[in-house]
Amino acid sequence: MRIRRITAVLALTALSLVVAAPATAATPARATPAGHGDLRRDLGAIVDAGATAALAEVADRSGTRRAAAGVAQLGRPAPAPTGGRFRIGSVSKTFLATVILQLEAERRLRLDDTVQRWLPGVVPGGDRITLRQLLNHTSGLYDYTDALDLSPQGWLAQRFRSWEPAELVALATAQPPLFAPGTDWSYSNTNYVLLGMVVETVTGNDHAAEIQRRIIGPLGLRQTESPGEKASITGPHAHGYLPVGPQGAQKPVDVTRMNPSVADAAGDMISSTADLNTFFAALLGGRLLPPAQLAAMTTMVPGHDYGLGLERTPLSCGVTLYGHGGGIFGYATGSFHTRDGSRRLSLSINPYQGDFDPALETLIDRVFCPAG
């Protein structure tokens, strides 16, 4: 499997909010299913390659294995917590997409409703953009994160700023559309900020409350939340860092505390590897959506491995994975699952410097590509 596109994105998203399309297939290394020792070793290789911490949970028919490598905080000896919490970035999109599809199943909205129908006057040309096009990134809307100064220095100066969803959307709509709705594909966080606003219009509750009521509570995801403007990560967690300063003399700056409203419904959530595996198992197992809505979610845009808030990753060993990746300052997340739920991998990496592509490739091969 070639995982380089995923890991390049994970590394970059430590400095942004965007996770792009999933990896394309190539030749995997032969491997055996990851046991506890293998998992610790492979996470250690990720840390050796330049991350400050890495943690993962693998679940399959033989049981569940968790491991961690690295330190919880630079300059201190405490190891990274195996069951720690972390910012999940764009993996939040799958939670929000699930709520939208539940509302469709309840006939409270239709995927072919226009943005103008639910958010009148918010988006120029919103009468030509559907909710489905927001979900699968075919709206053509400019990504508001491209209008932000996301350099370390630029972002650190405003890391605690509060953002309203309408402000984020205005950054995007100040730019011309990338293409006519439905004619192409381009990942845009703006789409999911708008979907969060739609949820509030339809239900009278903000996206965080509906995710809590419909998903987090029923599944007992005790380590998962949409934190709003809360800056801290509570409970055990590994810290995230950015390299700041001139090349060759960079110093790590702890960016664990931040105001996540800059990500809003597109990527503000906090979770754990265990909770993510539980969520995706329930989702792909049909516990959260009726068959028609789950089928729609897993239907990919032609020519792209993206459905309705769900990414598909085909491996050359014949396995196809579903899930989502995510990144936000100091944190990179991947959640990968076979369609039948027989194997699940969720992991968090705290990138700093270096290239952990080969180590992550080995880990994913070991979990999903059997030896032969």
Rank of each mutant, 00 (worst) to 15 (best):
D149F: 12
A25I: 02
P260D: 11
W163G: 08
A34P: 13
A8F: 14
V18S: 10
V202P: 10
A69C: 08
D143T: 01
D112F: 05
R41L: 09
L321F: 00
G37H: 05
G204W: 13
R132T: 04
V123G: 06
F279I: 08
S90R: 10
A78W: 00
D305M: 04
D38Q: 11
T256S: 14
A14V: 13
R132D: 02
A80F: 07
D365C: 08
D254A: 14
I364R: 11
Q158P: 00
A80W: 04
G303S: 10
S92K: 09
D48V: 12
L345G: 15
Q293F: 15
G323W: 00
I88G: 11
A172K: 03
G196F: 01
S316F: 00
L156C: 02
A51L: 13
S226R: 05
Y331P: 05
G75E: 00
R132S: 12
A59T: 02
S261D: 00
A105H: 13
M1S: 01
F179L: 03
A249R: 15
L103H: 12
G182M: 10
I215T: 06
R108M: 10
R107P: 00
L308V: 10
I129Q: 15
A282I: 09
M300N: 14
G309K: 08
I211H: 09
L17D: 09
N259R: 09
L17K: 03
S186I: 03
R287V: 06
T203C: 01
V122F: 03
P302F: 06
T27K: 00
E210M: 09
A147F: 11
E210V: 12
A249L: 03
A97C: 14
H337L: 10
A20E: 10
G196W: 02
D112K: 14
D113V: 04
T7I: 12
K93P: 09
A371N: 13
W185L: 09
V19D: 14
D340F: 08
V115Q: 10
V301M: 11
F336P: 10
I100H: 05
G217C: 03
W118K: 08
G196A: 15
R343H: 07
L347A: 14
V122P: 09
T273V: 12
T114W: 12
L141T: 06
G318A: 00
S271H: 07
G220P: 14
R339N: 07
Y331L: 05
Q116E: 15
H324L: 14
V122T: 11
R257Q: 05
E167F: 02
P260V: 04
N259L: 11
W185Y: 13
A157I: 01
R128A: 14
A26H: 02
N259M: 11
W185V: 09
G372M: 02
G154D: 00
A59V: 07
T273R: 06
G326A: 07
I215Y: 09
D206V: 03
V244T: 06
